[in-house]
Structures are given as structure tokens and as C-alpha cells.
Design a protein around this nucleic acid. Structure first.
Lengths: 230, 230
DNA sequence: GAGTGGTCTAGACCACTCA
DNA sequence: GAGTGGTCTAGACCACTCG
């Protein structure tokens, strides 16, 4: 892994932020200071810092300096697929707890979506550094993943498992804001009635429905983002 | 409207692609050729081309050249682009009220996003059959749409107008759930603290930021949906 | 006035591709 | 070997902020 000087500087600054060497809002060394520290020209430092700003790790203000940006838990709209991976890639610790795993009678909606009356049902809570970030309430079509109930979902997320046995061909998302019910609030550790981001996610593999999931996120701690070109 | 050399080059190339001067897959002039054409140093051309590549307008291959990229398939995800059209297509009546339209001092965040301190600011409320469906709080870079303040936004939505004067090249969405403030609640006709779906939407045209909008929707009456193929 | 980030220059070396 | 993009240098000027 050969890194260019500007990449080394980026990694160094990003690492310093992740490790808490600099706190949120704190001033980072100036470009000239970094030139001396890394023995490079200012254009090289400038590129590193410009890219960090574009990636929203830092804020830059002409005449004042560069500052550590506020971190936000952010997921890609298209890729809510692996929340464990996203949490880990932010430098946090992911942990999940399996609350339910077994057969269930599908509601009429779910039965229509999955084309089955008896389905697999799992409920997990995903934690980022011991703070609840997502409730994953999932129904799975048994024919599409017969070994679903034999998995240890504390180690491999249901999504990751399903991607393996039934490769994704299509996804549908419906996003809405809702007030936390008593049940949801207690699992997420928020107040009853506080705003939650609720994602209904339906997946297909080879044109056949695989799974329907309802994902609850605490409004104050979670955002979805997406960027597209026209 | 002061453009830096690298921005001029970006706009020129982006415009040439948009206008069909170069077709998809076609080779663009080399960096050295562009140096001569624009009478700038290679680093300046390089920055322009590197940013166009990051914005996926072009592909660059070392040793070969720069090529016009395949336009990315619109994910159709958060097609909030024209709420008036969406409402009408549901068979409802769309009506909007302009609450604010004028100059404003940008907050630090908005100034950083738009690259301007003094910006245009508009606030609208969109109604579906006389029920509030969206508050549209928008900031616009004046250079990108100089005639913004002269428009009648009760007839043509800001988004539709901007699409005309500054064709969309890129969109970024951040979606979150939040509790309605007193102000938001009164405009949407919901209870204070009730869940709202808040969309931060940032748009670019030819690689330059055009507008930042914050869209508030009543959680009980609004959903976003999207469907993708893998 | 000292310091900051934003930008630009006119060179340079490299790895790569293609004829 | 000629041409390409990827990167770097050691200067420079500017507008801005802050004490």
C-alpha cells in the first residue's frame, strides 16, 4: 500500500480526529505548520486539507483556520444494507442483540409482499458504541433462505447473510418520520413520542421477493444521505 | 460573478458535455492542450479535471486520456424535485404560499455550501388540497440565478425555475426525523414536537453549488420512496 | 500587521499506454 | 519514444480575520 504524501497527511489528520487527539470544534494546525511537520510544500498540504473538508471531516474558514467538524452518524440511502459495516467504518464499535428469531404468521401486508403466510421473523437492535442506532424488524420468505433460523445474527447481520444466499436484484425504500411507540422508545432508549426515522425496505432477488424489513432509527442520532448525478 | 480559472475550465468542459459538443465516451483535450487554450498552468487544468472526475462527469485513464462519462442512471430515489407535479399527479390541487423572498446573510454552514455570504432566501409552504405538505426553506447562490427575486413562486416552484436557469448536475440529500418546532408546527398545522421528515437538499450545476434547501414535512402525511435495481 | 486559507505558476519526475 | 494523467515543489499574490 503505497501512499502519496497528500494521502499520508489526510490519514494522519483523520486518525488524529478519530482518536480524539483533536476534539470537535478544535483548531487544527495551519497549512504552514503542516508543511514543516511533513516536510512538503503547501500545495500538497492544501490538497489534503481540501479533500478532508470535502469529506466533511473538517471545516475551513479563510482567515481563521481549519476546525474539526461535528461528526454525524450517516448512512447511504442506497446502502442501509450493512449497518455493522457502516458503524465500524466510522471507527465505532458495533454490537447487535437478537430479540426474536423464529417462525411467524405474516400480517396481510407482509403476506402479500412475500407471497407466503408462514414466514421467518427476526428482531435485532444494533448498537454503535453501546448506543442504540437501529431496530431491525424483518420478515423473510422461507423458500428464499431456508437456513435463516440457523444463523447467529449477533455475528453476521441478517442483511449480510441474505446478500449471500439471495443476491440482491432490487430494493424498494419508503422513508417516513414517526413518533416512537412505547416499545420502540424502550428499545432505542429515547422518549415515547420522540421523532424516529422509519425505513420500510423490501428486497428482491431474481425478481422474487426475499424480505421485508422495518428499520427504526432515533431521529436525533441518525441521518440518511444520498448523492446523485443527473 | 467572479470565477476562478479552474472554475472557468470546469464550466467550459461541463457545458461542452451538456451541449453535446463531446459525446459519451469521446476523448477530451489533454491537460497540456487545455493549458494552451486557457493560458493557465497545468496544475490549474489538473484541478479542474480532477474535480470533474470526482463529480463523475468524466473518466480519466493514466496514459490514455480523459473521456466523457456515461450519465449515471437516475435512481429516482428522492425525486422531490417538483412537489407541485407530484401533488397534481395524485389528482390533488397544489397551492403554494410565498412567505419570504429576498436577500439574506448566510449562516456559516450555508455560506460554506454556496460559497457566498449574501444569498437569496425564500420560504414557501406547499399545500395539497389545502393541507400543508411541505415547508421549503431555500438559499440560492445569486450568481447562479440572478433573476431569482423577480419570480412569482406561487406559479412556478423555485425548483422548477432553478432547473431552467441552472440545469442540475448533482444532488445531495440528507434525510432525518426531527420534532416540529413552534414555527414549523404552526406552518404545517401540526402539534409542536410531532415528528417531521426533514430533507436537506443541496444541488450543483456544472460542478458549482446552486442552492441549499431544507424541506419540512409532516411525518403523518408524507413519505419518501425509491426503488433501485442492483 | 501577522496569520490564515484560496488560488496560481512554471517548472519537474513518475508510471503508464500506444503506436 | 511521444503522449497521457498523477503528483510534487518553492515560490507568489490575494482577501480575509483577529488582536
Amino acid at each position: 500500500m503505497m501512499l502519496n504524501p497528500y494521502q499520508i497527511i489526510k490519514s494522519s489528520i483523520a486518525g488524529g480526529i478519530a482518536s480524539g487527539q483533536w476534539r470537535v470544534g478544535e483548531v487544527l494546525p495551519s497549512e504552514n505548520a503542516l508543511c514543516k511537520r511533513f516536510s512538503v510544500s503547501r500545495m500538497t498540504v492544501n490538497r489534503a486539507m481540501r479533500e478532508l473538508a470535502r469529506e466533511r471531516l473538517i471545516n475551513r474558514v479563510p482567515g481563521r483556520g481549519s476546525f474539526v467538524a461535528e461528526p454525524v452518524a450517516q448512512s447511504g440511502l442506497v446502502q442501509i444494507r450493512n449497518i455493522a459495516h457502516e458503524i465500524v467504518s466510522r471507527g465505532s464499535v458495533h454490537r447487535s442483540v437478537v430479540l426474536t428469531l423464529g417462525w411467524a404468521d405474516a400480517t396481510e401486508d407482509v403476506a402479500a409482499d412475500l407471497g407466503a403466510r408462514r414466514v421467518f421473523h427476526s428482531v435485532l437492535v444494533h448498537y454503535e458504541d453501546d448506543v442504540a442506532l437501529q431496530i431491525e424488524d424483518r420478515f423473510v420468505a422461507p423458500e428464499m433462505a431456508p437456513s435463516y433460523l440457523d444463523q447467529n445474527f449477533a455475528r453476521v447481520t441478517p442483511n449480510a447473510f441474505l446478500m449471500g444466499v439471495a443476491p440482491l436484484s432490487e430494493v424498494e425504500h419508503v422513508v417516513q418520520a414517526a413518533a416512537a411507540s412505547v416499545h420502540v422508545a424502550s428499545l432505542l432508549g429515547v422518549d415515547v413520542g420522540s421523532p424516529c426515522l422509519v425505513v420500510h425496505r423490501k428486497t428482491w432477488s431474481g425478481g422474487r421477493p426475499v424480505s421485508v424489513a422495518i428499520l427504526y432509527h432515533p431521529g436525533a442520532r441518525f441521518r440518511l444521505s444520498g448523492r446523485f448525478s443527473a
